[in-house]
Design a protein around this nucleic acid. Sequence first.
DNA 1: GACCTGCTGCGGATTG
Length: 729
Amino acid sequence: MTEPFHSLDRRIQKWVFKQGWSNLRQIQNDAIPPILAGNQDVIISASTASGKTEAFFLPACSSTIDEKDGYSILYISPLKALINDQYRRLESLSVITDINVTPWHGDVAQSLKTKSKRNPSGIVLITPESLESLLIRNSGWVQRSFSSLKYIVIDEFHAFIGTARGQHLLSLLNRLEALLQEIEEPIPRVALSATLGNLNEIPGVLRQNSRMPCSIIKESKSNSQIRFGIQGYIDPVNNDQKIPAFHRICTDLFSLCRGGSHLIFANSRKRTESISAQLSDMCEQEVVPNEFFPHHGSLDKSLREALEARLQKDNLPTTAVCTMTLELGIDIGKVDSVIQVTAPHSVASLRQRLGRSGRRNTPSTLRMLISEKELHADSSIGDKLRIELLQSIAMTRLLIIKKWYEPADLGSFHFSTLLHQVLALIAQWGGIRADQIYNSLCKEGCFNNVTVEQFKELLHHMGQQDLLTQISGGQLVLGLKGEYLTNSYNFYTVFKTPQEFRVIARDKTLGTLPVDTLILEGQHIIFSGKRWRVESINTDNKTIIVSPSKGGDPPQFNGNGMLVHDTVRQEMFDIYKSGSYKIPIGSSEVDYLDSTAKSLFNEGLEFFQEALLHERRIIQHNDYVYIVSWMGDKIVNTIATMLIKLNYKVSIFSGIIEIEKTNLETVSNSLFELCSNNQLTNSDLALSVREKRIEKYDDFIPESLLNIGYGQNYFDVERAREWLELHII
DNA sequence: GACCTGCTGCGGATTG
């Protein structure tokens, strides 16, 4: 064992030996000195299953092992399932070291929480929402029982960064630290995370005021091998004659996956259901036991857990057809291969998915199955360019050669979450002055891009809606509406969830469907990878009763789009410009496309060259004008919305802007005028967007702030103008 | 043309 190991407490060393470990991993050794020192924040950045959790807990437990009064370690996780996993893993350590471990989330028995409340000590494993409820309802107890807190550790920190829930978490950390103010030194924050695109910016996210230095511990680059390939499919226009691409994809999936252990990522719950039902049918036709199962967020927990256990046990061949639910940190072991059907949405998520495959001594395997429409006289430019295949190729190259992935977007205002935190602070203290709220949340806190004027406007608007009211002496207290919101069971989460129906078969809950899904009695549906007939729909208790049947289609689940990054579109352009998708390794080139994908690529390339797209960004076809910018969706959205403001009829397909009933000259002149207007801002553009209420409390945000927040998230006027000046004018 | 996450205290019935 190495030098750092010997600085751990003897009881911790004993536990390590009992695990049968002959050595600590590199990140575990590296983490010991800064965590034992206890005078700095630490970011541990490494892939899934690399021993990050132990890297924190070994030194942290070592230095707090004899603390018996109050909690010493606060562990925060985005998932209840992860808390349960960690609790199991810490159990043996807690037996040897006599450190209490308390899981604390909505599913944990009240009795267990009450017991820990009477005698707080050791480690608490909690969700942000449960911590919020403790701060609002029990802040006095929190102040006492966390008064000797030594560490705050956040698991899966990458899952929080840039999101409303992440902003909530940061605000909670600041509020907790403010509550424990008698402690002179701030409490070290430790973030455990998957590798991040902009790692050097993360210390500033973890703590906004830099009151503590931050060490970054990074896993050294692995030399693991990757096998990858892309298979193309042509979806025929005339379905009577030829087999649809979907069926050929399923046939190939069946032969690729049968008998092994695989994950199929299908990008939407609807497609996940279709594919898994089709593969199950094929098992039935071949008279073999079914080994294909769906996994997504609308399926009941019991079904998902059964599948996770089956994947982990490894004794039965199992393929999960899944959404991002199997991208996260839940323990399912490693699989033989990962298959992506349709183009991935981001390189970052593709990377997480790839990390799920590759057993000991075998390379990670990634396959992509991409279908494109057969061309006809009226095919769109996007189809002619074979844009989905091109995006898949670009993402593969960015992941494998350039080792690039999207950095988190850190510029959002999060007004909805700010409003939530204003209410939470007032609820926590009973009454508090406006300047105190501003200082704690904005000036010293994580909403530091919000100005005093914007904050005043928000408070004023909240007052008008009876969310809060000012009493004599200047204190703010909750208004009637504010009382109603904060007393609701639903208040502790900052993210929005739709109303849902429960789907039940033979008294067993299969999962949930959004209330606005169009489902009728007697209809046949696919759900949970099986085929059903809808027997009855009960709107009072929000249930749908189904019975087994044949046939049916999966229901439509709703969702918002996401933004493709500039770098991905630029890579797509570079590939066509250079004319080759191959990856140079040494003096040779790796080809990873099958023959269909290759001919699809050549069709797209041919159109690119014929249309002179290597030098033209704007083209005309009949009375349509197209802008092919090869830029990310923020810039595409900005240019499209600028044109909509000038009353053009505009639509966007995969980053290509289509303008109806016009000509090149007219559009170019308009764009020139737009560029000469230096006054136009992102918020001005947001004015013409109708549906801007996206986050949970957006209904209570004044229109002006809504425009600022939306503009910041979806537009970039400055860079769009730069691009237009360079390429169009 | 997407996905995911989480949440209380109390009253009343039932059981040992």
